[in-house]
Each structure stands twice: as structure tokens, then as C-alpha cells.
Design a protein around this nucleic acid. Sequence first.
DNA 1: ATACACTAGTTGCTAATGCAACAAAAAAAG
DNA 2: CTTTTTTTGTTGCATTAGCAACTAGTGTAT
Lengths: 149, 149
Amino acid sequence: MVGLEGSRDVAWRAFITAHALVIERIERELADAGLPPLGWYDVLLELSVAPGRRLRMHELARAVVLSRSGLTRLVDRLERASLLRREPDPADRRGSFAVLTDEGAAVRERMWPVYARGIAEHFGKHLGDEEVEVLTGALKRVLGAAREV
Amino acid sequence: MVGLEGSRDVAWRAFITAHALVIERIERELADAGLPPLGWYDVLLELSVAPGRRLRMHELARAVVLSRSGLTRLVDRLERASLLRREPDPADRRGSFAVLTDEGAAVRERMWPVYARGIAEHFGKHLGDEEVEVLTGALKRVLGAAREV
DNA sequence: ATACACTAGTTGCTAATGCAACAAAAAAAG
DNA sequence: CTTTTTTTGTTGCATTAGCAACTAGTGTAT
């Protein structure tokens, strides 16, 4: 018995390997274009769509699937680059908001074309419309279940 | 324009977020069971199914989607744990094989039940049979394309 | 009110990863 | 052949991530 005989295990293997390969390609394309890595994009995007362009640190950590300490450091880097700033939460003196700056929004907008091209070229291009629907539905279910725990 | 409006971009977002969450869960379950991390499993599995239980370093790096330097260090750790050993390649004096040991095979077999349960619980359980087929087909296409480059 | 438990965020530490540079060998070009 | 280019694997270095421990503030129970 060597593991991975079941059809779900084969799907899993395809899932993680495709992920690793495509991320590797896209990260390289961003780096080659002189742009920040994907982790930065995730933070900037979450802040972009958040009300008031701000999120509490723990909300942001959860949104981008990072440990609290990992997020502290990531936000440090983004703050040093002036792409966001920390602001105290008047309603809870323990916590702070991460607030998107205009410069942060601008950087996200400069990243998006490169990122979008990578997604299309290495991912979207190879999927039929029907497959996209199935994939989205299935993975959102997986995602929802994993978030609940 | 905030990015991620197209249906393929939504699918991509679900893809990477589901990946991050499920991997996080499974890594924790392995750690809680006192077992090595997923990266070790990948190496042990590739060697298990390779002819002669051996692969050249660069083949292994490609198989587990890791940089050459990353693989050098990962193999260092596995070799220190006696789960594999390096052997020179008589046909090419630059290179070496990574060869699975019996102990390495045994450790992989001890990891598999925990890993399999994680895959089922956090991934497979939420997918219908039809979805599994679509997912596998689609992702294998993505994977093949990314490998070609 | 006071004690107790929990949550938020940061820090020190360690582990893991990629890039660039390197040495050695092989392969290709001439 | 001899020279040049490429491949293979390792190393130094810098970056990034998580865990455990800590501080500070909040919430809850008695």
C-alpha cells in the first residue's frame, strides 16, 4: 500500500501539486516585474474591499490565512513601505486596525495586471466554463468547512 | 476595479484559500500526532514509487516542486533521520541518488493514516464523485501545462 | 468589587526556503 | 582533441513563517 489510490487522494495530489507549480510561476513573474510578492497582494486586496479600507489585525490574519505573529511581521513590512498604517481601535485599546493607504491601493493596482495575467495563463486558460463553476462550488464548500473549525 | 471579478479569478481565490486552510489543518494534525511535516511525506512517497526506490536529486526536486537548494536541505534532514541515504551515481559523477531506507518506508506508512484522514476530513468529504472527476481532470491539465514551461 | 479566564498583538527563537555564487563534471561546438 | 556551455549539487546569505512566552486590556463569575 503506497497511499493515494483512492480517486479523492488522486484529486488531492493534483490539487497540491498544481498549486505549488502555479504559485511558483506567478511569484517569479511578479518578482521579474519588480513587484512585491503574493502575500502583499492578499493583504492589500482584503483591505481594499473592507469597509473603511481597514481591518483589525486578527481579522486580517484570518482573512489571509496567516498566524498572528506572521501577520504582525507582514504588516510591519507593508507599513515600512507606506502601503498601510496602523491605527488604534478606540473601542478596544488592545487592538489596532491596519488601514490601507492611497499608496497601498496604487501598488495593488499595479500588481493586478501581472497577477491577473499569471492567473489566466497558468490557471484559467486550461479550464472550461463548466469546470470553473464546478471548481468554485466545490472549493468554496471545502473552504467553508475548514473555516468553521 | 478591485481585481477578482471574473469567474476564473473567483475560482482562483477559492483555490488558493482552500489550499492554505486545508494544509494548515493537516500540518497541525501531523504535528499533534508526533509525525514529520508534509514535505517529508512528499519525498518519501516519490521515492517509494520510484524504480529502485531511488531518484536523482534534480528529479526529486522537480517531483516535489522545490528549488535545488531547498531540496538539498530537506534531503539533509531526512538523511540525518535515516529515512533515506545518498548514493553516488556511477553513471554521472556529479550527481547522487536519494535512496529510500526501510525506516523511511516505515515512517511513510505511519504517516499515511493520519494524512489520509486529514485529506478525507478536510477535502474529500466535501466533494461529490462527479466533482472529484472534474477537479482531477482540470487540475491535471493545469499541472501539465505548468510543468512544460 | 475582585478574581479569573480569555483575547489581541508583539517579540525571541528556531526552522524552512529561495537566490546567487561556486566547484566539479558532462555535453556540445569548433 | 580543445574550448565553451550547460548541468548537478552544495553553500552563504537574507527572507519569511510559526510556536511559545509575554504584556495589556477585556469580559465573566461569584
